[in-house]
Write a protein that binds this DNA or RNA. Structure first.
Lengths: 386, 386
DNA sequence: CTGAAAGCGCTAACAG
DNA sequence: CTGTTAGCGCTTTCAG
């Protein structure tokens, strides 16, 4: 069986290797490029060339070098030493706000990650996920990362990890937030996108609204957010979306200070549901719930259902992002091209960075009408039916 | 506003930094630990200590060092040089079969990734995703990765990247497949799990079955898989599951050679659907479709629906993995703890590797009855209704 | 096609 | 608490 043969071969290679290692550990001298050269009686350059520039030596000699390498258990040039010498690590670092694992839960972050991975793959670059332990502020991990550049995905303005990244002498691209002058950026026009959405609701007649948003700062505040807190939010995206809503609704006479905005630290649909509940409990006359993300909106939808409120007849709910699940549910939302965003970030970082930096890429968003927005019911309808 | 103040500060730091860089690029001599020491009139050790062992020098001197560093635009010890010296990269490499981006599509792979990321995070280690361009066999990326160890996730027996990983003198853990003697491993007992599932179907009375499986080798074969191909499959997991099914059904007199097994190269529910169609077209008397993954099973479910076949009354469908979507659909399947698997892989790699290697961790699986399996209809029922 | 020289930037003993 | 000494393992001109 072919399989057996191949597996057997692999096993063989492996055993031989382990054997060498066991010995080298003992001898305390794992083969190195220099020792290999010595053994062969050639210069280090030649051995190096055997690996990196096959055309720089005779096939015969190259064969001999490689053969001897195998015999001595030399695993090829050490990547770290090579990186030090060439000043190239062959990898880009990725910094995320949350636990690494958070990114694997949020569809929008996942889309971004996929796009970025695609770009890296295309360029043969590794993707180094920087471990950010949310408990202790372990900025050290940023300094330890051997990478040629960083992509920073959606962090607060005052993130210490971001500061650490910027202090490193490598190119950096920030996705979404924060906006920092002089640093390459890729994102969307949050202001325009949220304004369009707000206008739709305004046109439908909504004036009494409630807002559910993501965390506004690094401190946890699961509850109402004052106007001041909104304006001082450390997350550019949330700040802009709230600001856009405020501006839009103000034009039709809504006093923003009277609009309840509920914030949630953790980004999950369960939090969206509890936030919606808090809003509805505080003011049962609310006709529309505007959520700054689809995840939260999905939770709001669930809460509405739990209360027996029909959407959109009794309550309008909107989201933001355009994740597949939202689309499947017919959520009224704004779609942003997350995959493209990731690719663009990668391209920006890996492209031959001309001296024309900083560069900024703003991707298009699209309003998705969905089926969860409708004109508000009048008070009468509320009591006596449509 | 606090925000403005902080943002302003960051901006300041940044500008100063860019300024230095612009200059250093010109001078062609970015500050280094040595130059900093010279400037300060102290030894390199002292500067190094200022960063790595704060308790080894007076607070005052340390302050001076750090202050001068800032002034000179010294970004702190170069991570690559440090890695070369300390022989620690502070990161683990992850090798996946497919495009990096594939992992972000498959819920099972994603769960594994999350678990692994969690483990790395906990240990303050970075996670270096190795770029595997499926087109060209770019084994070089494996050699270029500056990591302290590798986790290999579910690759074929003869994967050249795996061979490259094993040739590197760092610890390695293989998740799922292949099984290689002498290499640490974490996985499940596929044989037992699939046997339990097969037994359930057998007990329900199924004898005429069809099987949908994932790719069996590195070459594309979207169609029926001969028994020989099944036995020679280069993917241990698929080989074992098919083998388990064959053994179980043979005990009740089913001739495995007569059981149609359809293979699909790409792992998607669309492929599951087309495979199911192929099976049903070939033999309309099939009473149960056994799929070796939930993704494929979900597709089979869709195809059954498309044909107006009721599940489980007209057709039994089973999966494998226990992804959330499958659970939501009530799929009869086997759940495996993917998150735990990832964590275990990370722990295994990062734990103080005693000389008791190789180690192997086998995680428990759980049969999920679901609602997509039922006794087959008799031929009479098929024609005349229940 | 091959070799000699010159570090890349840093840390780790081990003495003071 | 501070400095001296020695490389980590490799690539890269620049000559032969």
């Amino acid at each position: 069986m072919i399989y057996s043969v191949r597996a057997g071969l692999l096993q063989l290679v492996l055993n031989r290797y382990r054997h060498r290692m066991a010995r080298s550990i003992h001898v305390r001298r794992p083969a190195t490029l220099a020792s290999l050269a010595a053994e062969l009686g050639v210069s280090r350059t030649t051995v190096s060339n055997a690996y990196n520039r096959p055309d720089q030596l005779s096939p015969e000699l190259r064969r001999r070098v490689l053969e001897t390498a195998r015999r001595l258990g030399y695993p090829g040039p050490d990547p770290v030493a090579r990186s030090l010498r060439t000043r190239k690590a062959g990898a880009v670092g990725l910094l995320l706000t949350e636990n690494l694992s958070y990114a694997f839960r949020d569809p929008a972050a996942l889309g971004f990650l996929e796009g970025l991975a695609l770009a890296c793959e295309g360029a043969g670059q590794g993707l180094h996920l920087v471990p950010v332990n949310p408990e202790r502020e372990d900025v050290a991990a940023v300094h330890r990362a051997g990478v040629d550049g960083f992509v920073v995905y959606s962090v607060p303005d005052d993130d210490p990890h971001l500061a650490a990244v910027l202090s490193r002498p490598v190119p950096t691209v920030i996705a979404d937030q924060p906006h920092i002058e002089g640093v390459d950026r890729v994102g969307i026009d949050d202001r325009t996108a949220i304004t369009e959405l707000a206008q739709k609701l305004i046109n439908l007649g909504h004036r009494r609204i409630g807002v559910v948003c993501m965390r506004l700062a690094r401190d946890r505040n699961d509850g109402f957010a004052s106007v001041e807190r909104q304006q001082n939010a450390h997350f550019h995206v949330q700040r802009t979306r709230l600001g856009g809503l405020a501006a839009a609704f103000s034009t039709v006479g809504v006093d923003w200070a009277s609009v309840p905005v509920v914030e949630r630290f953790d980004h999950s649909s369960a939090m969206g549901a509890s936030a919606a509940a808090q809003l509805l409990d505080a003011d049962s006359q609310i006709t529309a719930l505007i959520c700054t993300s689809d995840i939260l909106a999905l939770g709001a939808l669930a809460e509405a259902k739990r209360r027996g409120l029909r959407v959109p007849q009794d309550l309008t709910v909107t989201g933001f992002d355009g994740i597949i699940e939202a689309e499947r549910m017919g959520l009224t939302t704004v779609r942003q091209p997350v995959l493209e965003k990731g690719k663009a970030a990668g391209r920006l970082l890996l492209s031959p960075s001309e001296r024309t930096r900083p560069r900024s890429i703003t991707l298009e968003t699209e309003f998705l009408p969905g089926t969860t927005a409708a004109p508000p019911r009048t008070t009468e309808e509320r009591w006596f039916g449509p």
